[in-house]
Amino acid sequence: MNLKKKHRPGETFIQAFLYFCGIFSIFTTIGIVFEIGKEALLFFGSPGVSLWEFLTGTTWQPQVGEFGVLPLVTSTFITTFFAMLIAIPFGLAIAIYLSEYATIKVKNTIKPILEVLAGIPTVVYGYFALSFMTPILRSIFGADVVDIYNTASAGLVMGILILPLITSMSEDALSAVPRSLREAAVGLGATKLETAVKVVFPAAISGIAAAIIVGISRVVGETMIVALAAGAGPKFTFNPFEGAETMTGHIVRISGGDLSYDSIDYNSLFAIGILLFFITLGLNIISQRIVSRFREVGE
C-alpha cells in the first residue's frame, strides 16, 4: 500500500482550516481599508476639503471647516519620540541582560513580572502620567514652562508602557538564537559582551526589529494615555511641554461622543484613521527593509 497516496480526509480538513486562518488576516485588512477608506473618500469628496490642505494645513477644527492634520501629526511624533527615548535603550539593555547574563532564577522572576505589567490598562498609565510624571517634570523644569497637560509626560510614560513589550519580544528573539553560536564565539575567546553584542544580537536582529516596530506602532496608536495626559484640543506646536492632541487622542475624544454617522466630522475621523494606517504601514515597510538587509543567516 502506498502510504503517500493514502486518503487522509482529516489532514485535508486541517490544511483547509489552517489556510483559512492564514488568509483571515487579509480579511481584516480588507475590512479596515474598505470601511475606513470608504468614509475617508467621502471626506475628501466633500466640498471645501482638499487632500493638499489636509496634509499641509496647520489648523484642525472640523466644526468650522478647517481640516489641516499637521497639528495632530506633530504631537503624535513628539510623544513617540519621547517614548522611544525611554523604551529602546532600556528595553534592549534589559533584554540582553535577561537573555545573556541573568541566571535562570532571576530570569524566571523578572519575565513574569514584565508580562503582568504589560497587562496594566493604559488608563492607569495615563493617570500615572498625569498624577506622577507631570508633577515631576513640573518640579524639574518649572511649572511655568511645563503645562499640566503636555506631550512629554505622555510620551515618557508611553515609553514605560511599552518597555515590557519590547523587552519580552527582544528577549524571546535573543533566546531563540542557538546556543551553539554562543559556544562557538566563547570558544574563539570572545568575552560575554562580545558574544552578546557581536554574535547573538545580530542573529536576533529580525526579532528585535519586530519588537521595536510593534513598540512604535503601539505608541503611535496608543490612545488612553494621550487622552488623559497630553491634553485636548489640536494645537500646532513643537514644544513638548505644551498640551497638544494627537491623532488617536482626537479620534477617541470625538468618537466617545458618538457622532452623527453621516456628518463631515465623522468622516474626517476616518481620514485621520487612514493616515494613521499609512504611517504605520510606512514604518513597517522601512523596518522590513532593515530586517532583510541585516538578517544573519543562522541555523
Binding site: S25, T28, E35, I36, V214, V220, G221
Partner: peptide, 27 residues
C-alpha cells in the same frame, strides 16, 4: 501571496487599537 500574508500580519500588529474600534463599530 504568502509573503503578502506575512507582511500584512506585521502591518496589522501596528494598526492602532482605536482603528480596530472604528472597524468594530462599522462592521
Amino acid at each position: 501571496f504568502n509573503r503578502i500574508i506575512q507582511t500584512n500580519i506585521n502591518n496589522l500588529a501596528g494598526v492602532p487599537s482605536i482603528i480596530y474600534g472604528m472597524l468594530g463599530l462599522a462592521i
